[in-house]
Simulated assay, not measured.
Amino acid sequence: MSRQIYLFSTSSHPKATCINSLNIRYLNPSIDFTKYDYLIITSKQAIKALEQYDKKDFIHLRALCVSAKTAMEYKSIGGSIVTAKEGYGDGLLEKIEEFSKETKWLYLRAQTVASNFAQVAKKNDYKIDEKILYVSECSEEILNLHVQKSATLIFTSPSSVECFLKTHTITSDLKVIVIGKTTAKSIPKNIEYQISEETSIESCIELALEV
């Protein structure tokens, strides 16, 4: 008998039960885009939040994106990218360090973030301003979820792990798959897990179906 697969993500997949872990509340801080050379974008929610602003004010700014998927989202609204880096914090920091320390970056972020790459870069005298564009809150859907025994749990962000653990325990009969190393850091140390070969939902699903 195949395992029930729970996918904790804002995206869906036909072979999994998709659970949206977070409710997103968008903010609208004042931003003077003329002060910056590039944007740093680490989520599609940040791109969604940009829709609150006049596109002509920011669309000329190329973006350093956390992944190919985020880059595609920015391109879909007419933007262009510096590059898309996999691996989250480490990859973004490495790319920022390729630029002059006089380069002015604007990091569009959530209230709570998993990586401290911006703080590390700023300590090394890189010019990065941060604007909080949205707040993520655990959804009732994940908090009240009834998980079947011997299921597979796919976590696609640190926040999805944290929200799940607010009202659930990861028991030994559950198989845990995470989308990358940053998400893996949120898994309790006594819990076994597997990391998908690629940082994509499809790769996670492929790993889940191997059981």
Rank of each mutant, 00 (worst) to 15 (best):
Q52R: 04
Y36V: 08
L64Y: 12
D173Q: 00
Q194S: 10
G91Y: 12
F164A: 05
Y88L: 12
V135I: 14
Y107V: 15
I47F: 11
Y126S: 13
T169F: 00
E94A: 15
I128T: 09
K166F: 06
S67W: 04
T152K: 05
I77E: 09
I154V: 09
I177N: 03
D57L: 11
L106M: 06
C204M: 04
Y88V: 06
S159P: 02
Q111L: 11
S157V: 00
I40S: 09
E102P: 13
S172G: 05
T183D: 03
N20E: 12
S12L: 06
N116A: 13
I191H: 03
E137D: 11
S67K: 08
T83Q: 14
L174G: 02
C163R: 05
S11T: 07
S159K: 03
L93S: 09
Y74H: 08
I179Y: 07
G79Y: 09
K56R: 15
K166D: 05
Y6R: 01
T17H: 01
L61F: 02
N124Y: 04
E197Y: 07
E206A: 10
F164R: 01
L108S: 14
I40M: 14
I5E: 05
E140I: 10
D173K: 01
L50C: 03
L143K: 15
D32R: 03
V135A: 02
G79C: 07
V147P: 00
Q148P: 04
N116V: 09
I132H: 10
T103C: 08
S172E: 14
T34Y: 04
A184R: 06
A84G: 06
F164S: 07
V66N: 09
K85Y: 13
L22R: 00
V135Y: 02
K123S: 12
L64S: 13
Y53S: 13
Q111A: 13
A110V: 04
R25V: 13
A16Y: 05
N190E: 10
V161W: 11
I5W: 01
E140S: 14
V176Q: 04
L207W: 01
S43C: 04
E94I: 09
